[in-house]
C-alpha cells in the first residue's frame, strides 16, 4: 500500500448498537435560535483521533457508543484513527490496541466494542466523511433530527462516502497518549453560575457526593443519584443559557449534568459547571460509576485547558505493533498490516 489519494471509497456500517453517530466539532452560532450544539461527548479523545488521522481539527468522526459498531471499507483502503474509552478493537478478529491507527482494506472487518470501562470511542477517517452539512455542521442531534445521516443514529447498511481517503504509511500503530489515561473518580468544576441558590453546607454536600451516574443518562444529560441537595430558596429561575458541563439541580435535588446534546437554555439553578478538560472524563463514566466533584478556580481551569491543548498537539506518539530489528526506512516501505495478519494466519 502506498500513500496517496484513491476515489470511490466509503465506510459501510455492518452493525451498530444504539447511539452511534457522526459528530464534528459541533454546530456553532445557532444556540440563539434554540439549536443544540451537539459535538463530541469526549472532546479530547475526538481531537486526538483527528490529529492522529492527520485531518483538520474538528473534522467529522464516528462517535461510538457502548452499543459498539462493526464496519468495512468499500472500494478502497482507508487509514483510521481510533481513540477514547478503552474500547475493544478487533481487525478481522485480531485484537488491536484500544487507541490505534490502522488501515482498513476492503474485505476486512473492523469491530469496536465497549471494554471494561469507558463509554465513548472516536473513529476518525484519514479523509472526509462526504455528506452534506446541515445548519453548518455534520454533528448529529437525534432529538431534533438534524445533522449526520437524516438526523439519526447510524444503523447497519449505512454507507458513508469518503472524500480524499488516504492510506498513511506505517501500518497498524498504537497511539501512546498519556493524556488519554484520565481517572474519573474526581471531576473538577467551577462553581456557578447559580451557586448562590445553595448555602455553604449544600455546596459542600454537592462537592463531596459521592454521586453515581444513573442509567437514565445519554448524550443530552447525565443524571446523578446520591443524597439530594436542598435549595436555599426557590428552584425555578428565569431561563438562561446552559454551557456544556453545566450542572442543573431541579426541584427534587438530584444534579443533572448537561452534556453535548443539551438544550441551549434552561430554567433550573446551575450549581456548577464542569471544566473543559474534565468534560471527557465525565462523559466516559458509565452508569453505576461513583465519583465526587472538586471545586477549582478559573485560573486553574484555564491552565488545565492550555496544558491539554499542548498535549493534543505533541503529547502523543505512534508505536508500531510489529517489533523487529529492521531499519525504520525498510519498515516504512513494508505492508505491515498484511504482514502482521499473514503471520498470525500461518500459526
Amino acid at each position: 500500500m502506498s500513500e496517496g489519494t484513491v476515489s470511490g471509497a466509503a465506510l459501510r456500517i455492518l452493525a451498530a448498537g444504539p447511539g452511534v453517530t457522526i459528530q464534528d466539532a459541533g454546530r456553532h452560532g445557532l444556540l440563539r435560535f434554540g439549536v443544540t450544539g451537539a459535538g463530541p461527548m469526549d472532546p479530547l479523545a475526538f481531537a486526538l483521533a483527528n490529529k492522529v488521522a492527520q485531518v483538520p481539527d474538528g473534522s467529522a468522526a464516528l462517535e461510538i457508543s457502548m452499543g459498539g459498531v462493526e464496519l468495512e471499507a468499500v472500494d478502497a483502503a482507508i487509514t483510521l484513527a481510533i481513540a477514547g474509552g478503552n474500547f475493544r478493537v478487533t481487525l478481522d478478529g485480531q485484537a488491536m490496541p484500544s487507541a490505534a491507527r490502522l488501515t482498513l482494506e476492503p474485505g476486512s472487518k473492523l469491530s469496536i466494542k465497549a471494554g471494561e470501562e469507558g463509554a465513548w470511542c472516536y473513529l476518525a477517517p484519514c479523509g472526509r466523511i462526504d455528506i452534506p452539512a446541515q445548519l453548518g455542521s455534520l454533528s448529529t442531534h437525534t432529538r431534533s433530527g438534524i445533522g449526520g445521516l437524516q438526523g439519526r443514529a447510524l444503523a447497519a447498511g449505512d454507507v458513508l462516502p469518503l472524500a480524499e481517503p488516504k492510506v498513511l504509511p506505517g501500518g497498524a500503530m498504537e497511539i501512546e497518549a498519556p493524556v488519554l489515561k484520565r481517572p474519573g473518580d474526581v471531576i473538577r468544576v467551577l462553581l456557578g453560575p447559580q451557586d448562590d441558590y445553595f448555602n455553604d453546607a449544600e455546596i459542600a454536600a454537592f462537592l463531596n457526593g459521592p454521586w453515581t451516574v444513573s442509567v437514565r443518562s445519554d448524550r443530552m444529560a447525565y443524571f446523578l443519584d446520591g443524597t439530594p441537595l436542598t435549595h436555599a430558596g426557590g428552584f425555578n429561575i428565569v431561563s438562561d443559557g446552559i454551557a456544556h458541563g453545566g450542572i442543573q439541580v431541579p426541584g427534587e435535588g438530584f444534579p443533572v449534568v448537561l452534556m453535548g446534546d443539551r438544550q441551549p437554555t434552561g430554567g433550573y439553578p446551575k450549581i456548577a459547571t464542569i471544566i473543559g478538560v474534565d468534560l471527557g472524563r465525565m462523559a466516559q463514566l458509565r452508569p453505576g460509576s461513583v465519583f465526587r466533584f472538586a471545586s477549582v478556580s478559573l485560573e486553574e481551569a484555564v491552565a488545565a485547558r492550555r496544558a491539554e491543548a499542548a498535549e493534543v498537539v505533541s503529547g502523543w506518539a505512534l508505536a508500531p505493533l510489529v517489533r523487529t530489528s529492521l531499519s525504520s526506512e525498510f519498515l516504512l516501505g513494508c505492508r505491515l498490516v498484511d504482514g502482521w495478519v499473514d503471520a498470525l494466519a500461518e500459526d
Binding site: L190, L191, G192, P193, A243, T273, L298, A301
Partner: peptide, 14 residues
C-alpha cells in the same frame, strides 16, 4: 457569572 471557563453570563436582572 461564570458558566465554566468558556462561558460568561452577563445578567441584567432576574
Amino acid at each position: 457569572l461564570n458558566s465554566g471557563e468558556t462561558a460568561l453570563v452577563v445578567e441584567f436582572g432576574r
